[in-house]
């Protein structure tokens, strides 16, 4: 269970949002909506523990993520607006590295399956630097097929994807939600994800 209380975020001397709070339980999906610059990405980074809130606190399983980051981090998969891919490594190497970083043991077959699921298996042995924007995004999103974590925090996962890939990703999110996972997503697109409970958080700039 993820609980946010009274979150206030300052960037520089600009107040992005204040007193944001919500509760997300197993099987829960939350959309974070808002204009560009309203602080959606900052909120997600805050929930990952990458950013410290000016005020307020985030709790994972009843413990503040500031005091007990390991428990939160081992249950978290975050895909930000940066893909976190190395241009000089192949898609397969990139995927295996990010899986091992979260201590998942991943063999070639599993990683290839994940790349097949996102439709970039053809590019598995190409350096990521030569791929298109959408293909890079799909390599990054393939991590979701290997992820065993309960909480997915995705920043604009549908951006730069073609319609077929949007459907594939939606299906994967549906499965994750059905297994009792949680997801927090920012998006500007209308997507239909089935979840036990869905909430929307709107940030006003």
């Amino acid at each position: 269970m993820l609980i946010a209380r009274n979150l206030t975020c300052l960037r520089g001397d600009r107040l992005l949002f204040k007193k944001v709070g919500f509760e997300l339980s197993a099987g829960g999906l939350m959309y974070v909506l808002g204009e560009n610059g309203s602080g959606k990405s900052s909120l997600l980074r805050l929930l990952c523990g990458l950013l410290a809130p000016e005020d307020g606190e985030v709790f994972w399983d009843g413990k503040s993520i500031k005091n007990d980051p390991e428990n939160h981090q081992s249950n978290l998969t975050y895909i930000g607006h940066l893909n976190g891919l190395k241009d000089d490594l192949t898609a397969l190497e990139n995927l295996q590295f990010s899986a091992r970083l979260v201590a998942n043991v991943v063999d070639n077959g599993l990683a290839l399956n994940a790349l097949t699921a996102t439709g970039v298996a053809r590019c598995a042995n190409l350096p990521v630097g030569v791929l298109s924007q959408g293909q890079k995004r799909r390599v990054a999103l393939a991590r979701l097929w290997l992820s065993t974590s309960q909480l997915w925090i995705l920043d604009e996962p549908f951006a730069a994807l073609d319609t077929a890939s949007v459907v594939v990703l939606t299906t994967q999110l549906n499965q994750h939600m059905a297994k009792g996972g949680m997801a927090i997503i920012t998006t500007h697109q209308d997507v239909d994800i089935q979840a036990q409970s869905t909430q929307t958080l709107r940030l006003i700039a």
Binding site: L82, L85, K86, S98
Partner: peptide, 17 residues
Amino acid sequence: AADFADGSLEQMLIAPQ
């Protein structure tokens, strides 16, 4: 710098290690 620019540093910061 390179890890910072492409986002892999973020992933290391939130890795459970």
